[in-house]
Simulated scan of single mutants.
Amino acid sequence: MSKACCPGSFDPMTQGHLDIFRRAARLFDELIITVVVNPNKQGMFTTDERIALIEENVADLPGVTVEQWTGLLVDYARERDVACIVKGLRNSTDFDYELPMAGMNQHLTGVETAFLTTSPQYSYVSSSLVKEVFKLGGDVSALVPANVQAALDAKAGR
C-alpha cells in the first residue's frame, strides 16, 4: 500500500492546492494532507479552521485524510510510515526552494519527495497573494473553493 503526505500551511487553501490534492490522491492508496503548524506564525485561520475547510473539499476523495503536525516533517513521515512527500511546484523558484528540503528529508529518513507541477491556470496562485488581494478588497472567488471564500468573507465581516 502506497502512502504519501502533502504538507503545507494552507492558510488559506487555494484551488491550486485542491488540484494537487486531487491529482496526488489518484497516485497513492492513502494521502494525508498534513497541515503543518508553525507556532511562530499567526495565521489568518486557526489550524482547526484550515483542517475543516480542507476536509470539506476532499470528502469525496477515497483514502484522503487531513491531520495537523508541529515539528519536523520527516518525524511525521517516520511516525506515519509515509513513503513519499508530495509537493506542488508553480515555478522554478518553488523548485529551488523545495529541492534542498527534499534532499535533506531523503538523507535523514529515506523518505522520497514527488513534485507535481501546478496546472497552468493556478501557476500564479499562492495563499500569500490570495490573502493580500483579499485584504485589499480584490475578488479572489475564482482562486479559492467556495467554502474558503465564505470563510474569508466571514473573517472580514463581509
Score class of each variant (00 low, 15 high):
Ile85Arg: 12
Thr113Leu: 05
Gln15Tyr: 07
Arg158Phe: 12
Ala52Glu: 14
Arg22Leu: 02
Arg23Ser: 04
Val74Thr: 15
Asp48Met: 07
Asp29Gly: 15
Lys131Gly: 09
Ala102Tyr: 03
Ala25Cys: 09
Gly16Ile: 04
Gln149Met: 15
Asp19Met: 01
Asn91Thr: 03
Asp81Pro: 00
Ala59Cys: 01
Gly137Cys: 09
Val64Tyr: 00
Asn38Gln: 07
Pro39Ile: 09
Ser2Tyr: 11
Phe28Pro: 01
Thr14Leu: 12
Ala150Gln: 15
Ala25Gln: 06
Ala151Arg: 13
Phe21Asp: 06
Lys3His: 11
Thr46Asp: 04
Ala142Gly: 08
Val86Gly: 00
Pro62Lys: 14
Leu108Tyr: 13
Arg22Lys: 15
Phe21Trp: 02
Ala102Val: 05
Val86Cys: 01
Ile51Leu: 11
Asn91Tyr: 07
Val133Met: 07
Ser9Lys: 14
Gly63Lys: 10
Met44Ile: 14
Val74Met: 07
Asp75Gly: 07
Lys131Asp: 08
Ser128Thr: 15
Val133Thr: 10
Lys3Ala: 14
Gly103Asp: 01
Val64His: 00
Ile20Gly: 08
Phe95Met: 14
Ala24Leu: 04
Val35Cys: 12
Ser9Ile: 06
Asn57Leu: 06
Asp96Pro: 00
Ser2Glu: 13
Phe10Pro: 10
Gly157Trp: 10
Ser123Lys: 14
Tyr97Arg: 13
Pro39Lys: 14
Val111Phe: 09
Gly71Trp: 03
Arg26Ile: 01
Phe115Gln: 02
Asp60Tyr: 00
Leu72Tyr: 08
Gly103Lys: 08
Val111Glu: 06
Leu108Cys: 02
Gly8Met: 03
Gln42Trp: 00
Asp153Thr: 06
Val148Arg: 09
Pro12Ser: 11
Pro12Cys: 12
Pro39Leu: 07
Gly138Leu: 08
Val37Gly: 00
Tyr124His: 12
Leu53Phe: 05
Asn57Tyr: 02
Leu31Ile: 13
Gly71Glu: 05
Tyr76Glu: 03
Val130Arg: 13
Val58Tyr: 03
Val35Gly: 12
Phe10Ile: 10
Phe45Cys: 09
Phe115Val: 05
Lys41Tyr: 01
Val35Pro: 08
Glu79Tyr: 11
Asn105Gly: 04
His107Thr: 09
His17Arg: 12
Phe45His: 11
His107Tyr: 15
Pro120Ala: 14
Gly43Thr: 05
Phe134Gly: 05
Gln42Cys: 00
Leu72Met: 15
Val144Ile: 08
Ala151His: 10
Ala142Ile: 01
Cys6Met: 14
Ser123Tyr: 00
Thr14Gly: 08
Val140Arg: 03
Phe21His: 05
Arg90Cys: 06
Met101Asn: 13
Arg22Thr: 08
Cys6Phe: 13
Glu132Gly: 02
Thr93Ser: 14
Lys87Met: 03
Thr70Arg: 09
Asp11Met: 09
